[in-house]
Simulated scan of single mutants.
Amino acid sequence: MTTTTRRDFLRAGAALGTVLGTGLAPRLALAADEPLRIGVVYVSPIAEIGWTKQHSLGVEAIEKTYGDKVKITVLDNIFTPQDSERVFRQLAADGNKLIFGTSFSHGTPMQKVAPRFPKTAFEHCSGIVHLANLGLFEARYYEGTYVAGAAAGHMTKSAKIGFIGGFPIPDILYSANALLLGAQRVNPAITCNALFLNSWYDPGKEKEAAATLISQGCDVICSMTDTATGVQVAGDHGVWSIGYASDMARFASGKQLTAFTLDWSSDYLNNTRAVMDGTWKPTVRWDGLGAGVVKMAPYNDQIPAAALAGVKQLEADVAAGKVLPFAGEVKDQSGKVRVATGAALSDDEIRSMNWFVAGMVGKLG
């Protein structure tokens, strides 16, 4: 695998400016003895834990399985639309036949580039637009936050929990909402204060946000960003936390209740295999606990036995589809019934969520 810095890659790409601007760069055919060239673009630096770390484990799974049959170029810290579009275009022009984007913010650049390279397979994690050569994969994070929320419901003493998100986009909103709904299974009076950083990676802002939530009386903190800052700050203040993407227990001073972790290896391996054998087609995949893309980290042993048994049963029921986190009745912040009793939100309704459930404290804008 080759890991290239953003600056070096874009500097090298400047020499191809004329060709890349036309979208007519040559496409390389994959010979029988030629390794499959794969490009992977991360939105943040590769760290010990977190969102990008979990994607890097998917790349490692490809390397372990296919060895010298693949040649992988990885670029991290690519997040602006301008840089992202240039990077995706150059990766395609360089002959990479499978290209992964790993952030919602990569969506528009990939949608611009993919049609100009119809013989290249593009895969976008957290995307919403599906094209002829652009597939999508995502995780049902809300299943993990719903189960974690139930654990929080058993452990909160203030009946106030806190949520930190990168941006108020649907996959963050439905995760925050499910966290509170899971907690309200235990105690309907529980509320959740929500703050957004408007950044996927900003440890300084995240530290301030976590401290703010704690000062507001929140005694369980869940942070959906790409660092362990939320669990660290919570642990430092002696309050509970919920990890995201990776198991963050070692950073939590013994206070992580659990984490909803992400295992993308099946998406990376299955797409690589399909491109190699010529069967790849753009699909839309949205998997959760049942498929093993979302997994719950070990639960804190301070959770009382009876409560823990209930949380584990809930995890099994959600994985099996017996419990739907967005089954009615569900009201929004204004008191409007969004989901009637006996009904449940459809996948499309969940994935386009732009509202907070009743009991959420915070604004979307």
Rank of each mutant, 00 (worst) to 15 (best):
202 D>M: 11
213 L>F: 00
146 Y>L: 14
154 H>A: 12
203 P>I: 06
175 S>R: 11
173 L>S: 05
177 N>P: 00
230 G>T: 03
212 T>V: 05
228 A>F: 10
199 S>F: 06
236 D>K: 10
218 C>W: 02
231 V>Y: 04
157 K>Q: 12
179 L>S: 04
232 Q>W: 06
210 A>G: 02
147 V>I: 15
151 A>H: 06
149 G>W: 08
232 Q>M: 14
228 A>S: 14
150 A>K: 15
169 I>S: 02
173 L>V: 02
216 Q>M: 09
237 H>Y: 03
153 G>M: 09
201 Y>G: 02
180 L>G: 06
217 G>S: 09
216 Q>K: 11
190 I>F: 00
230 G>M: 03
188 P>D: 15
196 F>S: 03
152 A>S: 15
171 D>W: 06
215 S>N: 08
200 W>F: 14
185 R>T: 11
180 L>Y: 05
207 K>D: 11
209 A>P: 09
152 A>Q: 14
197 L>Q: 13
188 P>V: 10
145 T>Q: 13
146 Y>I: 11
202 D>Y: 07
237 H>W: 01
200 W>G: 04
188 P>S: 12
172 I>D: 01
201 Y>M: 03
199 S>Q: 13
200 W>E: 08
222 C>P: 00
147 V>P: 15
199 S>C: 09
173 L>W: 02
192 C>R: 05
149 G>P: 02
156 T>C: 10
159 A>L: 10
184 Q>C: 07
220 V>M: 15
177 N>D: 13
183 A>P: 01
205 K>W: 08
148 A>S: 15
188 P>A: 13
224 M>N: 14
237 H>V: 01
228 A>H: 13
166 G>K: 04
159 A>P: 00
155 M>P: 00
200 W>V: 00
187 N>W: 07
156 T>D: 12
188 P>M: 13
175 S>T: 11
194 A>I: 15
227 T>G: 07
189 A>Y: 04
154 H>Q: 04
166 G>P: 04
236 D>M: 07
213 L>D: 01
209 A>N: 10
233 V>Q: 14
180 L>D: 06
